[in-house]
Computed example of a mutant assay.
Amino acid sequence: MTETNKKIKPELKLIDVKPALENYHTVVKAFIQNPTASIISDLKIEAQVTKKDSKTVLHEIKKENYAMAPNTNFGFAIPWDNQELKPGKYTVSVKAEDKTKEKWEFTRDFEIKKEAESLNKEAVDIEKSFPWGWTIAGGIVLLAIIAGAVYFIIKKRRKN
Score class of each variant (00 low, 15 high):
residue 68 M to S: 02
residue 151 Y to T: 15
residue 28 V to E: 00
residue 12 L to N: 06
residue 107 T to P: 04
residue 53 D to F: 12
residue 23 N to T: 14
residue 49 V to E: 01
residue 8 I to P: 01
residue 145 I to A: 05
residue 108 R to L: 01
residue 137 A to Y: 01
residue 128 K to G: 04
residue 108 R to M: 09
residue 91 T to I: 07
residue 138 G to F: 11
residue 126 I to E: 05
residue 4 T to V: 12
residue 26 T to V: 05
residue 141 V to M: 06
residue 143 L to M: 10
residue 154 I to Q: 08
residue 66 Y to R: 02
residue 54 S to E: 13
residue 75 G to E: 01
residue 23 N to H: 13
residue 8 I to D: 04
residue 114 K to R: 09
residue 103 K to R: 15
residue 113 K to M: 05
residue 54 S to M: 07
residue 93 S to I: 14
residue 69 A to H: 14
residue 102 E to R: 10
residue 61 I to S: 04
residue 44 K to D: 09
residue 26 T to C: 09
residue 39 I to H: 14
residue 155 K to S: 03
residue 136 I to C: 09
residue 151 Y to C: 03
residue 9 K to M: 05
residue 101 K to A: 09
residue 25 H to C: 06
residue 65 N to D: 12
residue 139 G to V: 08
residue 2 T to W: 11
residue 157 R to V: 14
residue 18 K to Y: 15
residue 97 E to K: 15
residue 45 I to E: 00
residue 40 I to T: 05
residue 90 Y to G: 07
residue 33 Q to F: 10
residue 41 S to A: 12
residue 14 L to E: 01
residue 32 I to L: 08
residue 106 F to E: 03
residue 105 E to S: 15
residue 153 I to W: 07
residue 114 K to L: 07
residue 74 F to T: 02
residue 113 K to Y: 06
residue 55 K to Q: 15
residue 101 K to C: 02
residue 129 S to M: 10
residue 17 V to I: 10
residue 14 L to K: 00
residue 116 A to F: 00
residue 152 F to K: 10
residue 125 D to R: 12
residue 36 T to N: 05
residue 16 D to H: 10
residue 25 H to T: 08
residue 50 T to A: 11
residue 153 I to N: 07
residue 8 I to V: 14
residue 143 L to P: 05
residue 111 E to R: 07
residue 125 D to H: 07
residue 85 L to E: 04
residue 103 K to C: 00
residue 14 L to V: 02
residue 9 K to S: 15
residue 133 G to A: 12
residue 118 S to R: 02
residue 78 I to K: 02
residue 111 E to C: 03
residue 44 K to S: 08
residue 68 M to V: 04
residue 141 V to C: 03
residue 34 N to C: 13
residue 46 E to A: 07
residue 82 N to G: 05
residue 106 F to G: 06
residue 4 T to S: 15
residue 152 F to R: 12
residue 80 W to T: 02
residue 51 K to A: 10
residue 126 I to F: 05
residue 100 T to S: 15
